[in-house]
């Protein structure tokens, strides 16, 4: 692999994310660990969305629903553990398992119905389902309703990983992000991934050469939901608070924006997008209360002028770079 600007950028970004807590401790600014921890969690969500949106062409406008499912598994479990003394319910492995199971089931139901439609209808149906679950959470007084649940403790991983400290939670997030990146790298290059990408490229053709496209798309939809469910578990532990707004449709929109901003259908695009999104949010909201007024036009510019998102710009930079370096080599000859 050649050291093109894009690869150098991605390596620096990932290494940088790896040392954030160390730097934050050194400069005595623990706030940054928390901020970047959020970036990691939403990166996982965006990476999972990218599997179906970027590689599969399925514009799911309800992806945050899995963040909600994962979060509520932690919220409900921890509440029973604290209030009713049922300690095993705060077990992190159990919560992750439940989040995986429930996210997969939800994905199966939503996908089985919405994947029968295409285009705008698909967007609207996934949106409708996620809003339905959002209102279930709002209406559920037993588990906090609109106000949500405060967590008095984080998930307990049998003492294997102690995430009471922000730094250890940060590295748990980081490892899970790396795992989900590796998983999606394997997936998109496998036979399964070829089918998903082929269906995005030309669905009619896929059918004509003999692929039952629906079942592959459904499985991809479920896998993406499951990964995002795990991100939900992490998110609840990070904020130590769960309320329905984690699965509000604006959150789903945020995930789409992150993916598009970073670069659809590229491995690291969603990570770049999530980091850039939260960075801009933090930076702009520090300057003005009306930060969205500036953020909106920036997004419009990215969509118009950089079709491949930030990663697309880096690819463009690579091309410019290789052109220039070949010119230089010729001069030397």
């Amino acid at each position: 692999m050649k050291g093109t600007p894009r690869i150098i950028f991605i390596v620096i970004l990932m290494l940088g994310l790896g040392v954030v807590p160390l730097l934050a401790d050194y400069f005595d600014e623990p706030f940054y660990t928390v901020m970047f921890s959020r970036m990691l969690i939403l990166s996982i969500g965006a990476v999972s969305l990218n599997l179906i949106l970027g590689f599969g062409g399925m514009v799911s406008f309800g992806h945050a629903v899995y963040l909600g499912i994962g979060s509520y598994m932690v919220g409900i479990g921890t509440m029973h553990a604290v209030e009713d003394g049922i300690e095993w319910m705060a077990n992190g492995f159990l919560q992750i398992t439940l989040a995986i199971v429930f996210s997969a089931l939800t994905g199966l139901v939503i996908g089985a119905i919405s994947l029968r439609t295409r285009g705008v209808y698909f967007i609207m149906i996934t949106l409708a389902f996620s809003q339905m679950l959002y209102f279930v959470a709002v209406g559920n007084e037993r588990y906090g309703g609109d106000d949500g649940l405060s967590l008095y403790m984080r998930s307990d991983f049998n003492g294997l990983i102690d995430i009471t400290y922000d730094n250890s939670l940060y590295y748990l997030n980081f490892v899970i992000l790396l795992l989900s990146l590796y998983l999606s790298h394997r997936l998109i290059n496998s036979r399964f991934g070829m089918v998903i990408r082929g269906a995005k490229s030309n669905e009619q053709r896929m059918r004509a050469i003999g692929f039952p496209v629906f079942r592959y798309q459904l499985v991809a939809f479920v896998i993406a939901g499951t990964i995002c469910g795990i991100a939900g578990v992490l998110s609840a532990n990070q904020t130590e608070f769960v309320n329905p707004s984690v699965m509000h449709w604006t959150r789903s929109g945020d995930l789409i924006i992150m993916t598009v901003l970073g670069g659809l259908g590229t491995l690291f695009g969603p990570v770049i997008g999530a980091v850039a999104f939260l960075f801009l949010e933090e930076f702009l909201s520090g300057i003005t209360e009306y930060w969205q007024l500036y953020f909106g036009p920036m997004l419009v510019l990215v969509v118009i002028f950089a079709r491949g998102g930030i990663d697309g710009m880096l690819v463009g930079l690579d091309k410019w770079w290789s052109r220039n370096s070949t010119v230089k080599n010729e001069e030397i000859d």
Binding site: R191, I209, G210, F211, Y216
Partner: peptide, 17 residues
């Protein structure tokens, strides 16, 4: 991809196609 369509099911998630 056309060859793959007739080489059994495509639920292979790991190997690089």
């Amino acid at each position: 991809l056309a060859v793959q369509a007739h080489a059994g099911h495509s639920f292979h998630f790991w190997k690089n196609a």
